[in-house]
Structure formats: structure tokens, C-alpha cells
Amino acid sequence: MSDVIHTDVVIVGAGPTGLFAVFELGLLDIKCHLVDILDRPGGQCAELYPEKPIYDIPGYPVVSGAELTKNLMEQIRPFGPTFHFGHMVTELKKLGDADFELKTDGGLHFRCKVVVVAAGGGSFQPKKPPIPGIEQYEEKSVFYAVRKMEAFRGKDVLIIGGGDSALDWTNNLQPIARSMTLLHRREEFRAAPDSVNKMRELVAAGKMQMKFGQVTALKGENGELAGAVVKGNDGQSFEIVTNAMLPFFGLTMKLGPVADWGLNLHENLIPVDTEKFETNIPGIFAIGDINYYPGKLKLILSGFHEGALMAQQAFRIINPGARLMFQYTTSSTNLQRKLGVAE
């Protein structure tokens, strides 16, 4: 059993909304841990459109998804949030009157007084290609992520894709696999040129194969994959022998475990009030794209506002009876001390 992490607040999701919530909570001396299944902060801004311009962040005529994320990280740094990337929050339970318990698929275990669900469009999950019958092989011989490299030792590995994940795992698993084949639909690769070059060297040295085409069918039985039928770009079909297939077709957002936490749902969104942005379970808040209320707009701007109001109620829960004083960052020495900018 892992050690339990005790904290005031756990924020589920490190998209722009979750990040800015750290700031608003931090001004009220509330410490946060953030969990995200992605390997970096920024949510949709980082995963879907890091280089695209956003024009409706107040005060920024234009800012890219990546810049906005970088700036938010800078802005919340004084509050020293703790990030847990690569973890999906799978369980959320109320313990007694005052506490919540959260668990992640990677074995983290939290106790906290307030939970902020800033899960956006849901957790990013790998896309599963609709190859007929693929389900029976999933988690037995078809995998969408590499959890333990050792699981691929001595296997005939087939990796599908042309992006960074596909190329990185091709290069990393090749030395321990019995055979390695990379299958991609075209000759150009999106992945970093370095890893493409490395892969091409392995091919030139006869250590692996590179094929072009798309999988149309799978062969095998009882979840044990034996081969993949591929339609080549010349229209001819051929077969690749494999007992471990890794398709890398990017990520899609799925609501995921959020649906199992006893929260009311309205078309996959969590209804909240517009005073505190609290859910049907007091102490659990939902802010950003994941929530629903009349007039809701799925904008980054809305998520920021919701975080500020949520923080007020979170303060009252964490500090029962304490008085909350309204202050401006411009003029309050107290707030400026927290931000590390006061003399």
C-alpha cells in the first residue's frame, strides 16, 4: 500500500481551468495537488492546439495554447502546487463527514477536504482503431500504451503510426523484441527527425522492418494475436506476423471514470450552481468545460471565473468559521507576500 498524500485540495485535470484554480486557491492559502493523465500541463491547449492562436483571453490580443499554458505555470509557481502527471483519477469517495479519498490508476492515494473536478472534455485516452474483432485482443496482445517495457521482451512487436509515440517505442522496444515492424500509412513521418533517422538506421542494419499500409483484419484466437492483415499502398494485401501490437492513433477525450463518482450528470457534464460551482456532493466542485449550468459557455475565460468563485467556498469548507476578506492583488501587501512580490 502506498503512502497516503494529505492535502487541502486535489484538482482533477491540469488544463487551463485546473491551473488557474491553483492561483485563486493559493491566494487564500490553500495548497493543491493536481492529477492529469497527460504527461504535461495545459489540457486541450497543450494536446490539441499548442501552436494555434487564441484571441479571446482578456488582456492578450493573441496567445497560443502553449504560451498560455507556460504563462499560467509561471503565474501559479509561487503557490508551489504538486503535479502528478501520467495518472488517471479512477476513484473518488467521501470518507465520513469531512474528507475525500482519491485513487489513481498508477497507485497514488490522496486524502483531502475539497475536490475540484476540472476534467474538461474528459480524460485524454488513446484512440482505438475500429479493426473488426480488435476488442478480444485488447490488454492481451493489443496495447495502446507501454506500461512495462519488459512485457514486450521476446515478442514479435508490430507498431502502427508515424508520430512521436510510434517512433519512440519502435526505437526503445526494438532491442528487447524478438522482431520489430513499424507500419505507417505513408512515407512521411510526423515524428521528430532524430527518431525517424534512428529508426531508418535500424532498418538499414536489418534489425527491424518498415512497412507501408493499413491494417484491415487481425488473426489469432483466445485473445492471442498471431498476425495482422495489411492492405499495402499498392492495393495488395499482405500479412505481418505479430503477437504484440501497439496502435498509436493519437488521443481522444472520453469522460472516463468521472461518471462513476456519484455525481449528477447532464449529457456527460456535471451540473453545478453558479454561486459556488459546487456539485450535488458538497465539497466537490466542477469548473471549466466539464460543468453545466444555464448559459454555460465552454471558454477558457469562463473556467477562470468559475475557479475564482469556487475558491471562496473551498476556503469556507477548509477553514470553518474563519472570516474571508476580499482583497486586490494590486494593493494588498498580504496577497503580494504570498505571490513573492512584496518588499
Binding site: K127, P130, G161, G163, R185, R186, E188, R190, Q214, G250
Partner: peptide, 11 residues
Amino acid sequence: EEDMLDFAFDV
């Protein structure tokens, strides 16, 4: 678009 089609199925 060509890059993004890598993430589609049956291209």
C-alpha cells in the same frame, strides 16, 4: 491535414 489523417482510420 495530411499529417492529421495519420489519426484517421481507413484512409
